[in-house]
Structures are given as C-alpha cells and as structure tokens.
Design a protein around this nucleic acid. Sequence first.
RNA 1: CGGGCUGUAGCGCAGCUUGGUAGCGCGCCGCGUUUGGGACGCGGAUGUCGCAGGUUCAAAUCCUGUCAGCCCGACCA
Length: 602
Amino acid sequence: MITRMSTLFLRTLREDPADAEVPSHQLLVRAGYIRRAAPGIYSWLPLGYRVLRNVERIVREEMDRIGAQEVHFPALLPREPYEATGRWTEYGENLFRLKDRKGGDYLLGPTHEEMFTLLVRDICSSYKSLPLALYQIQTKYRDEARPRAGILRGREFVMKDSYSFDIDDAGLEASYQRHREAYIRIFDRLGLRYVIVAAMSGAMGGSASEEFLADSEVGEDTYVRSPGGYAANVEAVTTPVPEVIPFDDALPARVEDTPDTPTIDTLVAVANERFPRADRPWTAADTLKNLVVMLRLPDGTREPLAIGLPGDREVDMKRLEAQVSPAEIEAFTEDDFKRNPALVKGYIGPGVLGTTKASGIRYVLDPRIVSGTRWITGADQHGRHVFDLTAGRDFDGEGVVEAAEIRAGDPAPDGSGPLSLARGIEMGHIFQLGRKYAEALDLKVLDQNGKLVTVTMGSYGVGVSRAVAAVAENSHDDKGLIWPRELSPADVHLVIAGKWPEVVAAAEELAAQLDTAGVRVLLDDRKASPGVKFADAELLGVPTILVVGRGVAEGTVELKDRRTGVGNEMSVAEAIETLVGLTGWAWAARLGSVSPGRETAR
RNA sequence: CGGGCUGUAGCGCAGCUUGGUAGCGCGCCGCGUUUGGGACGCGGAUGUCGCAGGUUCAAAUCCUGUCAGCCCGACCA
C-alpha cells in the first residue's frame, strides 16, 4: 500500500497543544493521530487509527492462539444484569447511565462480566462445553472523575476483555496461565518495557490477580520490586508481621501530661524532654497514631473507621481504598467530630476505640502492631498521652489493615530483600474471579455425575487504546514518535527531497516497487521544503525513513533508522532488499505464519 | 469533591491594569522566486473574545453568575 501525504487527511502541529501535558498526548495530537472530541473522548485520524488497529490485530492473534473465541457485545446495556450483581450501585458515579423513551434504565458498558456470564448460561449447560474462553474488543465507557493525559485515561476507550469458564479451580488456574502467557506475548510484541506485578482485585471481586504495568514516569500506578524477584502493585504489598513479644515484664501503662502535642513531631519532642527513655531517645516509630476516616458505601451511607498505625508512617489513601473497596474514603470532618464526642482530636487513643469501644467506631490496626508491642498514644483527653500501652494486653483491634505507606527499603513480604518503588501504566490485568458472578447470575452446568455445579470464571483485560499511548510514552524522543515495526502506520516513510522531475519519478518508481514487494509506503509527495518533510517524518515516527534526493542521479538513496538517526547511502536495489528484509518478519507475523518468538528480559 | 491556573482565528499566544477601530507568530488561499533540515517576497481569507446577565453613550477589558479545560490530591484497562 502507498499512502500519499499530498492527499492524506493529516495536519501536523508545530507546537504542543496547550491542554496536553504528557509526551504521548502532545505527540499523538501534534502528529495528527488523534483529536480531542470531548473531555476524555478522542477521535482517531487515519494514521492513528492504523496504529490502533495494529494493536487490535496483535491482541486478536494472541487471543486466537490460546483458543479464545471472539464475540462482540453491545456497548449499550440494560440495567438488570448489573442490578443482579450489585454493580449498578457499586459502580456509582463512574457509570454512564441513560434512559430510553419509555424511561427504562440503560448503561454504557464499563466492563462486561455480567453479559458474558449470562450468554454462557444461555448456551452452555454441560461440563462438556468447558473449558471456554471468550473475548471481545470493545469500546468501554467510564465516567472518570478526572480523565487525564489524552488517551492514556479516557472516558471512552477500547479494551480487549476476555472471560474464562471452568468447571473447577484447577481448570481456572490453567485458563489463567494461558492468558498470562498470551499477555506476555502481546506486550512483548507491542515493544513495551513492562513488569508483571501482584495486584488487588478491586471492584471486580475475586482472588488471584496480576497486573501488567508499562514502565513509565507518567504512570498512575506505583509498584514495588525486590532484588529477589518480588513485584507488586503498591496497593497489594503486604507487610511482614513482626514476632509477637511476650509482655510479662512489660511496664504498666501510665497516662502522662503532654501539653500542646497534637502532632507526632510535637509528641516525640515532649516525650524526650519530660519522659526520656534510658536506652535511647523516643522516635516517631514508638508512637501509635490513630486516624479516623469516613467510608462512603456504594449505597451512599457513611460509616466511620479508625486506623491505628506507627506514627512514623503516613496513610496511603490508595492502599486504604483498595482495602475497603467498593467503599470510598472521605475525610472525617469537624461535624463528624462533633457527632462523636468520645474522639478528642489530636489525642485519640485505643482507649475509646479498641478497649472500651466507647466510640462505637470500628478500629483496625496496621500489621506491625502485634501483641507485646508498646506504644505512646493518645489518652483520649486533651493534652495527655498513654505510655507503654501494650498491644494484646491493653488493647486490640478488630482486624488488620494494610493502609500504611510503603517506603523504599521496606522488606519484601517474601523475604527477598528491600523494596524499590517505580511507576507504571496499567496495560493489562488478569484475575481469577472465581464464582462471584456465576453465583449472582446462576451460571451452573451439569458435571460428570449429573450434578449441577457453579462455574468458576476468570476475567482478563488489555487496554487497547491505552496501549497506543503507552507505547508512545515508552518510545519517543524530542523530535517525535518512534513506533515499533509491528505498530507503525507504515513500514517506510519515503521522503522525496527535491522537486526535480527525475527525483520525483525515481521516488514514484521506488515506491511502486516497494509496494509490489509488500512494503507499506508512506510517501511524502507534498510540495514542501525538505526541512518540513524531515521534521514531519521524525514526528510521525515510522521506524525507517527512506530519502530520495539528488543522489538518485548516481543511483543512490539514503536509508535512515528513526531511532538511532543513523543514515546509510545505498543503491536503490540495496534499499529495496533491506526494507523487504526489515519488514518481512512483520508481514509473516501479520499473516500469522510465524511467532515473533521474542523473549523480553524483565 | 477540595486546592491552583486558564478560556481571544485551525494551533500557540498578546491585548484586560487605565472601557472607545480585535492583534501577533505559525498554519491556510493566490502569484512569483526557492528546494537535503521547519525558505522568501507581494497580495489575501478567517473571530459568537467560553456562555448568560448587569454597569456604561460604549465592554475582550469592569461587576455577578455560570460552563468548560488543564494541573495537584481520593478511582481504573
């Protein structure tokens, strides 16, 4: 195929659009791949749409390879199935809802677990139909509170979602592993630098879950890894639980006056001044900080929750929300304090929370607060704190919560060394859902013994439109985009550098030959100065740039690598041979006849 | 939802303090010169100054309200 830039529906921009902050957004708009249509909603222009379809093609090929079957659901869905699983409520504000002319409730699908489950229930009634894996590539809708970074986080986006159906847990595990391997192949082919991390299952429900995060500064997810190979989303990191300490010889708890100590810093200072320890000074880690937040449940009710954690740790709201999902966290307001007079702001302690339960508020503890640990903490009276309050003897929580921030250097939960932190873009997420949806929607099949059993499910997603942005984010320089060969809107960007008829004729001839050889050519046949053409070629990011200029008189052209910027003079014949060689494997992959077979070191 | 910034031509912006003819650069159209790194000359087209109300002889400019966008904090592919 030859694409002529003289007639291509394209406008490149010299300057970054004012509303774009991250490189992928700036470059995709500047290069004329996408245009904003509404907040978080983008139109795909010809070159951009090609890249998007290339991602779709890779995803399709790899899903088909593991035997998943493609279907296509509507984006416009009825309320009832989502009511049955509770997600009509749980999804809250993020759901696009609408009514038909009769007043019936509809929604624009944010994800399709319900619809797949119902379809399989309609069609499958025997274990002989399983295992089964279905997928679709679909436009999804989520009314995000804050769409961001162009296509990286839109309110309308394209996602591949697939679902596995198995008769038992071993089958689910096998389906999950097949998807995991397919995802590795997909993200390898996309050319992404990525990491697979343990994840929280979040609003989807279910148990085992991993995320594929593209390595990126602009990513919204923070993840950790250890030298020993542990990797997890920061939301899913668990804290190693310290040894329980016997408290037979522990000092009795005592209340002391600690005036003007509403914060941890002031408390530590006063404790060292007035009640110094013999062996070492008090630090923030000796204090127990008690924080109260409001949970907003999906049905709109509010419920207070108190969290006890070491004073040297901040609460990580994302981690906390992941723990209490689908509830959301709101601040505990002055009004809330008035309604709970037992809580003395700045001096809240386990006294009213854990021991006497005078407050009536649920109290959960950081995993570090094990039996026998001794703390300085609030005495529930203004200006007073308790010393040597001992966990397990003087107070207990009603559960453990992983809400404390994770810091670089914290130990990995599996003992594989200190954690380091990095950021990533969530590209894929695989879950072992289990039976939550099958139960809610009554998906059962007959097993070999003629007995009805509930099917167990997996749910798997790839952000297809997001992948375009993530690859752009992963692969660009200050001049523009640099596409991996399989995603590029063309195999070669042929720049006609010169207006002389013999140059133009030679370039046209060369483009035709390349086309015949199966090379997709983006031909810059515009009447523009060479500088403009070179700049656009670099902005658009086709990985190989072929320059036809004066040299054709001597039979030479220049073949440039977009990534390295290195150019080589060669004969026309050599250029054709090189290009066919460069793009041949991609064509073979496109036709499904070879596996790229690449192993990415992670 | 809270905090900050911003809405003027396709894109990037000035003008607003101190009210009076709507401007600049890029892009676009025409003619000519130019052609291996964002050329040049001459001539041109393009605006609901976010929206609504108010003050005023007169509002892009002042006042009130409202909407939208971007960024930062709490959600997800």
